[in-house]
Write a protein that binds this DNA or RNA. Structure first.
Lengths: 189, 189
DNA sequence: GTCTTTTCTTGAACTCGATTAAGTTTTGGC
DNA sequence: GCCAAAACTTAATCGAGTTCAAGAAAAGAC
């Protein structure tokens, strides 16, 4: 849980008392591989800080196949903000790709925490700015580069990550079929 | 400027004094067609609330052509948060598509405003959540639907908007060529 | 009003990546 | 260690959308 405190401290100043309040109001939770933090049609009840592990956020598209829109890794928050804040059913699944540990911030506790520590409201504003910018960047990659280029870019940026998750998930995240990914890899070797 | 106050009030409670502070610290500005609020390589200095008009946020891609990643319309904020917050050169242009009016929140004033009115920090957190969710939704559309489907979806959602902006901008936003858009339209009629 | 610039259209050739339908390899449960 | 399930590969065919090039129409400028 110290990783969470360290992360928040990179963005805003916390007193010792603040840190204790945060630790007392958030839950540590272990998540097994393939376990879900959120399922489609359920209302999202918490924001999760990933202490360790990998999560994927996906939905079932028109054709009935899984489409990954986001990977959550160490030191990122993962949730469906739209469902969480507006208390509406989510369109997404959030599932552990490998065994993981998270810090859980329940939505009812969140308000209490913001009231006690206003700096946290700022922290989340900054986190969201970062997430939003990353999402814009993602759209850029989709538009600017071919599937092959996106794959090389991704594998250069996260080489170790590529080893940890199944290829069909990478293909889904990058927006093409597993068959096409096979073809790209065959070309290279 | 009352539209801005009305908008903020939809998300958080403001006292009369708060409203006065906001109005006193923000600038009203008229923007002519084709004028820029931000250019690539410049550091973004403000967040703009669109009172009236349409803006496009775009960049120059690898091949040297303009790629629109976002349209800003009435009652939305538009800026490059990454550049604004981290004080780094922007990758984007923000340009008025038609004559417009904006409320300007300078980055130096922003901190002052947050200090005086903590509710605003919350307001921007909520705005960003919404923008982030919209961006995710955008990625979904790109992955799930064909160019033709995206066009019909867009034209059903914003029929009047379609009349106001050149078609090549719509094509760029939807992620295909103007030629292809022409073909889609030819089919329909 | 005419002239220039901007925007839109049309058609032919081409390409990236999807689809389908095998077969192969790897992983995990017991 | 064995078997089933999950993950990956290969190859042929097909289609959505690009590219290039040229011309038509619309919108500003003076």
């Amino acid at each position: 849980m110290q990783r969470l405190i360290a992360h928040i401290s990179k963005f805003v100043d916390l007193t010792e008392e603040d840190k204790e309040i945060i630790l007392s109001l958030m839950q540590y939770q272990e998540v097994k591989k393939k376990e879900y933090l959120l399922r489609q049609d359920a209302v999202c009840n918490a924001n999760y800080f990933i202490l360790k592990g990998v999560f994927r956020k996906y939905y079932i598209d028109e054709k009935g196949s899984e489409q990954i829109i986001h990977f959550g890794i160490d030191n990122w928050w993962i949730t469906d903000y739209d469902s969480l804040e507006r208390r509406i059913p989510s369109q997404y699944f959030i599932q552990a790709v490998e065994g993981a540990e998270v810090a859980v911030l329940d939505w009812r506790v969140q308000e209490e925490l913001f009231a006690k520590i206003p700096a946290l409201e700022r922290y989340f504003r900054l986190i969201l700015q970062r997430a939003y910018a990353a999402s814009m960047q993602r759209i850029r990659y989709i538009y600017d580069f071919s599937g092959e280029e996106r794959y090389y870019h991704f594998s250069n940026l996260y080489p170790e990550f590529l080893q940890r998750i199944p290829q069909y998930m990478v293909a889904s995240y990058l927006g093409f079929t597993p068959e096409f990914l096979s073809k790209i890899r065959a070309k290279k070797i």
